[in-house]
């Protein structure tokens, strides 16, 4: 048998990683809220800001958040990007819109999809509302919300978003 001695320059060596996520008390309440179809935030006792998803503390004030706040599933687009490339490990087909949305009653945004609209019509300050999966499919995940869709309400002044 002849021996091939060309250089070996690349070998596939995949790493698989499973991990357990300890949510903690604040994020547990947030995830339990999602299971009920509700967005639950928490208010900072220092600056009154409402965080969602609640992570248990206000990173600005360095204090624990305690008071639960039930939020609307209506929100405002703080900013967004239209993405033309796929997300590794996600079957979503480009182009799609990822927006930073601030739910009514909260002072911080999270990212989610915007759909049921023309991509070129999405704008900062636009009003949107969550579109939920059927209740029978609700689990402990943000994926219970499929996307946010524009609603017929006046835009918010960009300087006032999340204030």
């Amino acid at each position: 048998m002849s021996e091939d001695k060309t250089g070996i320059t690349m070998m596939d060596a995949p790493i698989y990683l499973d991990y357990n996520f300890t949510a903690g008390s604040a994020t547990s309440r947030f995830l339990h809220g999602l299971k009920q179809g509700v967005l639950i935030g928490q208010r900072c006792p220092g600056c009154d800001a409402v965080y969602v998803p609640a992570r248990g503390s206000c990173a600005r004030c360095g204090v624990a958040t305690g008071e639960d706040v039930v939020l609307s599933d209506k929100a405002t687009v703080e900013s967004f990007t239209i993405v033309y490339i796929p997300i590794p490990g996600n079957p979503i087909k480009p182009p799609y819109i990822i927006a930073n949305v601030v739910p009514d009653g909260a002072n911080i945004s999270f990212i989610h999809l915007i759909s049921e609209c023309n991509n070129e019509d999405v704008r900062i300050g636009q009003r949107v509302q969550a579109v939920w999966k059927p209740e029978s499919e609700w689990t402990y995940a943000m994926d219970n919300i499929i996307y946010f869709k524009p609603i017929d309400e006046a835009d918010i002044d960009p300087e006032q978003i999340g204030r």
Partner: peptide, 30 residues
């Protein structure tokens, strides 16, 4: 693949983090 390494799903967020460009593009827009 850095794009993959920066796009891991998180349990409290939808799996929509599309690499560094996806994170910085909305900040640039603002």
């Amino acid at each position: 693949n850095a794009m993959w390494a920066l796009s891991n799903p998180q349990p409290f967020s939808p799996h929509l983090n599309a690499g560094a460009g996806g994170y910085f593009a909305p900040i640039i827009r603002e």
